Simulated assay, not measured.
Amino acid sequence: MNQKVYEELFNAKSTVIAYGANPSFDSDPSKIEKWGLEKEGYYLIVGRMIPDNNADLILEGFIQSDSTKKLVIVGDVPFQDEYAIRLKIMKDERLLFTGYVTDPEELKSLYHNCFAYFHGHEYGGTNPTLIKAMAYGCAILALDTRFSRETLQNGKHGWFFGKNPTDLKNIISKAKSEHEKIQELRDTARDGLTDKYNWDRVTGRYLEVFEGLRNP
């Protein structure tokens, strides 16, 4: 979709290369115990605390919901920022801010054991956290953008919500009442990792571009 943006705004052709992810099927469940978490007892957000990622929208909708699960927010910003501070002072005992998680095994366990993963990223192309959520078998609830629709194959591998807290609240209610469909999203998430997200193909495409620049 970034290719279309370049064409529409700048009338410029470009080469699109996706991000990659390796499917993973297991992790150490004890890794989440340090935060007092249990398997499928929480929703998950992973990303920088910046407006483009819409964590405020997700938190506001979650707070309005009657969910008994927690909402775990992984990530931060490496500077003092009013937006990030506003998120961290939101009052709800179900919210858990972990800050940065640098241990890859801990992060993997957080993905593997969540009830569902919220993806609020609004801009960009293939997003690494979304691809990782698919590779780790998450049920994905994503902001309705053309980038997410492309990656999740128009809803085959995730559900979409609009950019308002009410929509977020409603999708939480839907997830609560449709456990079997949430499990189906988990079971089929890795099927969405088509060949274009394979690391061998990704690196091969980069080599093709570099060779083309050297030998135009």
Rank of each mutant, 00 (worst) to 15 (best):
L95A: 13
K70H: 09
F79P: 01
M90A: 11
G75D: 01
N54D: 13
F79E: 05
I89N: 07
K69E: 04
V72H: 01
T68R: 10
D92V: 06
I85Q: 13
L59T: 09
P78M: 05
L87P: 01
L96W: 08
A55E: 15
E93K: 15
T98I: 15
E60H: 08
K91G: 08
F97V: 12
G75H: 02
L59V: 15
V77P: 00
D66S: 14
L96T: 10
A84Q: 04
R94T: 05
D92P: 08
Q80V: 08
G61T: 08
D66P: 05
A55G: 10
G75W: 03
L71N: 04
D81A: 07
R86Y: 06
D81P: 06
L96P: 10
I58Y: 15
D56A: 11
N54V: 12
D76M: 02
L87A: 02
F97Y: 15
V72N: 01
K69H: 06
I89S: 07
L96C: 10
M90H: 08
I63C: 08
K70W: 03
I63S: 09
D56P: 05
P78R: 04
V74G: 00
R94V: 06
G61C: 05
Q64D: 11
L87R: 01
K70I: 00
V77L: 02
T98E: 13
I89Y: 09
L71D: 03
D92M: 07
R86V: 00
G99Q: 11
V72R: 01
I73L: 08
L71I: 02
I58T: 12
K69T: 01
I89T: 12
S67C: 05
R86Q: 11
D56V: 01
F97C: 13
K91T: 14
D66N: 13
I85R: 12
Q80E: 13
Q64S: 13
K70L: 04
V74F: 00
Q64A: 14
Y83E: 05
D66R: 10
K69Y: 05
Y83D: 02
Q80G: 03
V77I: 05
R94I: 06
L59F: 07
K88F: 07
R94S: 07
L59H: 08
G75F: 01
G99P: 13
G99M: 13
V74P: 00
D56M: 11
K69D: 02
K88V: 04
R94A: 07
K88R: 15
D81M: 06
I85W: 09
F79H: 09
Q80T: 09
I63W: 09
E60R: 14
F97W: 14
P78T: 03
G99C: 14
A84C: 02
I89M: 08
I63K: 14
R94E: 06
D76A: 06
V74T: 01
R86T: 09
L57F: 11
Y83P: 01
L71V: 02
I63F: 07
I58S: 15
I63P: 09
D76E: 06
V74W: 00
L71P: 05
F79A: 04
F79G: 00
L96D: 10
L87M: 06
I85D: 12
E60D: 15
D66E: 14
V77Y: 01
V77G: 00
I85Y: 12
L87V: 05
D56C: 04
P78D: 07
A55C: 14
Q64P: 00
G75N: 01
M90W: 08
